[in-house]
Simulated scan of single mutants.
Amino acid sequence: MSDMTRNDMTSTNSAGAGGGLVNAQAIFLLIGLALLLAAPFFVYPIFLMKLLCFALFACAFNLLLGYTGLLSFGHAAFFGGAAYITAHTVKEWGVTPEIGVLLGVLAAAFLGLVMGFVAIRRQGIYFAMITLALAQMFFFFCLQAEFTKGEDGIQSVPRGHLFGVVDLNNPIAMYFFVLAVFLIGMAIIWRFVNSPFGMILKSIRENEPRAVSLGYAVDRYKLGAFVMSAALTGLAGGVKALVFQFATLTDVSWQMSGEVILMTLLGGIGTLVGPIFGAGLVVTLQNYLATSSFPVTIITGVVFMVCVLVFRRGIIGEFYASRLGRKLGFVHRR
């Protein structure tokens, strides 16, 4: 057999294997989508909507931590800030829910621009501490501001009609609205990560001095990632305010920032699916242990300790790194 023939056969086998991997991943995607579409008819819709909101929140945070290498302790400011703006504009201004969510996203993006401009001048623990300090400043602003109603928060937020047609007071209609927002947010994250901009962010994460030596304006790319992460976090926060029909100080507290870090670490940093799995685990524990005598925070802490000790890359990260994960074509690049 000639060398050319062998090369052609090798190329054909590689192409076939690649097609098989793509098909396997497509099948997983279709199964997940089918489960999401059928879920509200078998599971309590409010629980599912909470899970989707926090899953999008964790994925938006992972965009900054997993793909840019920046650990923020202040993402609750964007989540809660968008929730307040959405709740206020829908209730007091009478805007439609989609406009309220959009205004919340714009407010979160602007806040991300301001906070990011200050924070990206430092690295490592200093960056994390600056984001925490700025978020705490925003927390006390929300505590004192008149439109946030202080410790009472904004209550009884009307869901209204989507585009003036779809009544979001119907739980099933509200669920599919949240699902659509979640899928759009995930599509944006996927496109962002797999774009040339995303490739540069990964290079900054892996070796920032080398990225600088190649001529990239590193601070601008970091700021862009920070604003995008803040905007998507605001999207999750705005929708969450409509789901539960209130916005309170809990949404902007430092504990909320800690929760999203926990979700991302449990699922797997630097993976698209990992934060979704981590958010599902934490929200499920909170939901089903809330009415029991077990302290939720202690159980969550034990689960986190076990995952850190056993699954160093996170649960999904370890699956990607396993033989089965590699065989199915999932690669953990973190």
Rank of each mutant, 00 (worst) to 15 (best):
243 V>I: 05
44 Y>A: 15
311 F>I: 05
131 T>Q: 00
178 V>I: 01
162 L>T: 00
166 V>T: 12
12 T>A: 15
160 G>L: 03
115 M>L: 07
238 G>N: 03
248 T>I: 04
68 T>Y: 01
183 L>Y: 02
93 W>R: 13
114 V>L: 05
181 V>E: 07
174 M>Y: 02
174 M>D: 04
253 S>E: 01
233 T>E: 08
78 F>S: 14
21 L>P: 05
226 F>Y: 11
306 V>E: 06
302 V>G: 10
19 G>P: 07
331 V>R: 13
44 Y>H: 15
37 L>R: 09
186 M>H: 01
201 L>C: 13
55 A>Y: 03
114 V>D: 00
102 L>A: 13
80 G>D: 00
283 V>T: 12
37 L>G: 07
200 I>C: 06
176 F>M: 06
278 G>W: 04
214 L>W: 10
270 G>F: 00
214 L>F: 14
184 I>C: 12
64 L>S: 02
89 T>E: 10
326 R>G: 15
10 T>I: 15
238 G>M: 02
209 P>V: 11
294 F>Q: 08
243 V>M: 11
42 F>Y: 10
239 V>Y: 06
86 T>Y: 10
141 F>H: 09
331 V>N: 14
204 I>S: 01
175 Y>K: 03
28 F>R: 14
310 V>H: 07
86 T>K: 05
94 G>I: 09
284 T>V: 03
279 A>R: 08
117 F>H: 04
216 Y>Q: 09
37 L>A: 12
185 G>Y: 01
45 P>K: 06
155 Q>L: 09
330 F>D: 05
37 L>D: 09
122 R>T: 15
269 I>V: 11
164 G>K: 02
258 G>P: 13
90 V>G: 12
181 V>Q: 01
183 L>E: 00
328 L>M: 09
230 A>K: 00
156 S>I: 05
118 V>G: 02
196 P>R: 07
91 K>V: 13
66 G>T: 01
61 F>W: 06
45 P>I: 00
149 K>D: 11
167 D>N: 14
289 L>Y: 00
29 L>H: 11
111 L>S: 05
211 A>H: 08
325 G>K: 06
31 I>P: 07
138 F>E: 03
224 G>L: 01
215 G>Q: 06
299 I>Q: 05
248 T>A: 02
6 R>F: 13
205 R>W: 05
136 Q>A: 03
195 S>G: 12
187 A>W: 07
101 V>Q: 03
50 K>L: 10
34 A>H: 10
235 L>C: 06
125 I>S: 09
275 P>I: 04
